[in-house]
Design a protein around this nucleic acid. Structure first.
Lengths: 167, 167
DNA sequence: TAAAAATTTGCAACATTATAACAGTTGCGA
DNA sequence: TCGCAACTGTTATAATGTTGCAAATTTTTA
């Protein structure tokens, strides 16, 4: 089976971005949602970075584009993208990352490397099942799951000590 | 078996607070850590509320005490309490809640009611196991788990529609 | 097509959450 | 009682996120 593209494994990332954007356009078309230029650009910026991007990072990049933007512009675009499952917000980082499998309903589970900052999104049915079971046992009706796992990615484990690997 | 004290089940909460404080004193004694007046007071304030308290909520209450406090005072106390496992930070709420079973190592799993705001801390070995299994499969070395489940607690489910129950 | 309605964006101000840097104070052992 | 370490106070500032309203744009309707 072909190697999956992983943040910490070198690959042609422009391709990832292109695919993500194409998929986003398709999803918005189906949802009759408008992927306007600002929204698309924000999504692109987020995808271009493997590491989650803060709202103000996005803002800075927009400004670098020459776009005269203010915080609300960015937050609104991010809200839109989240609503359509195109990006996730990582609460423990106050940052945003592209969704790996948009369209499919899933609880975002994230492996966050504290050394290099890369993030891997997992689809982990076992975890989801365990969570739902535990919640049901408490008669709790689950609506949203935030699961963020911090630690060391494979590459940063093998690197001596704790030096971060360049992105 | 005796009914467990649950945030959404009426009970003598002063007792919870007293027990939590006594336990905290004991833990700090064993750890040779100093549970100073500010720290103890912050812990008490957090325990007095079933709902997670923001740092600035704590600050406001300290000020109401007549204590002339500033943000760093609160954040430092909270850091201390977190380090000793006496409180948890809920990332998705930017707020803090008392730890239900301090001393024991555990990954905090939280059921957060979006209607009444109460939070229940779970010890869920199954979930932890599933998480560790998934992480291991990705050769990821887990250090810290953030698991926050938002939804409706039993009481708010049975209340018609979405009206919040008073605390 | 033209007017009306709805959505999106721009913009200024502001609210909330968190940290940095440094000075003063307190507890405690030598 | 001196000195060190830990803790607290204080001021300022950084980082993150929101409100409210007006202008522009797109979509809908007549």
């Amino acid at each position: 089976m072909p190697a999956r593209a992983l943040p910490y494994r070198p690959h042609n990332h422009d391709l990832c971005v292109d695919q993500a954007l194409a998929q986003a356009r398709e999803i918005c078309r189906r949802n009759e949602a408008r992927l306007t230029p600002v929204r698309e650009r924000v999504l692109e910026l987020i995808w271009q970075s493997h590491k989650p991007l803060g709202a103000y990072d996005v803002l800075a990049q927009l400004s670098a584009d020459g776009h005269k933007a203010a915080p609300p512009t960015v937050y609104r675009a991010l809200d839109f993208l989240q609503q359509h499952g195109l990006v996730h917000r990582i609460a423990s980082l106050n940052a945003f990352t592209g969704c790996d499998h948009p369209g499919q309903h899933h609880c975002g589970t994230f492996l966050i490397c504290r050394s290099c900052g890369n993030v891997l999104e997992l689809a982990a049915p076992n975890i989801t099942a365990a969570i739902n079971q535990a919640a049901t046992a408490e008669t709790f009706q689950v609506e949203q799951i935030t699961l963020e796992i911090a630690g060391l990615c494979p590459r940063c484990q093998s690197d001596s000590a704790d030096q971060p690997t360049p992105s």
